[in-house]
Amino acid sequence: MNARKTITIAFFLVVLGVGYYSMNAAPVVRDDAHTYQGGLEWETDPSTALDAAQSQDKPVLVYYWATWCTYCERYDKNHYRNETVRAALDDYVLLAVNIDDPGNGTALVRQHQATYPPQHRIMTPEGETVESVEGYIGRDELLATLKRGSEEAT
């Protein structure tokens, strides 16, 4: 067989392989109940998150994000994958709301006036907002906010 044809056929096999492999290898952002921002498991339904917060007596960290938001990627990469931040987050129930597709979080988005990403709120288990972060902040500032929030909310 002609070498160019061989290469072309091999090419289509490669294309199919790349397509299949990459689709299945893509990190899951959201399934039915959770999203996985920064490799953490976040609730997506505010009522589930608040129930969990009440039973565990922990405050709720609300993260408003969007797929196209590059500052969210920075949060995911620099903050949520950091061990110190992760340790601080152990004191929290995590709730992430995609502001483009908030689902059950629609009312909360409105209540928090979270019109652009990224934003964070810290809520008591009863749903009262005690801290508010709009936009991107450095890791230290986030850690300080998390510390303050867990003191205020409990």
Binding site: G19, S22, M23, A26, P27, V28, V29, R30, D31, D32, T35, T67
Partner: peptide, 15 residues
């Protein structure tokens, strides 16, 4: 493919 996969299985994946 994120659109395809989301339509097919409801699972949202990130690219």
């Amino acid at each position: 493919f994120p659109v395809v996969r989301s339509l097919a299985s409801g699972v949202e994946v990130s690219v």
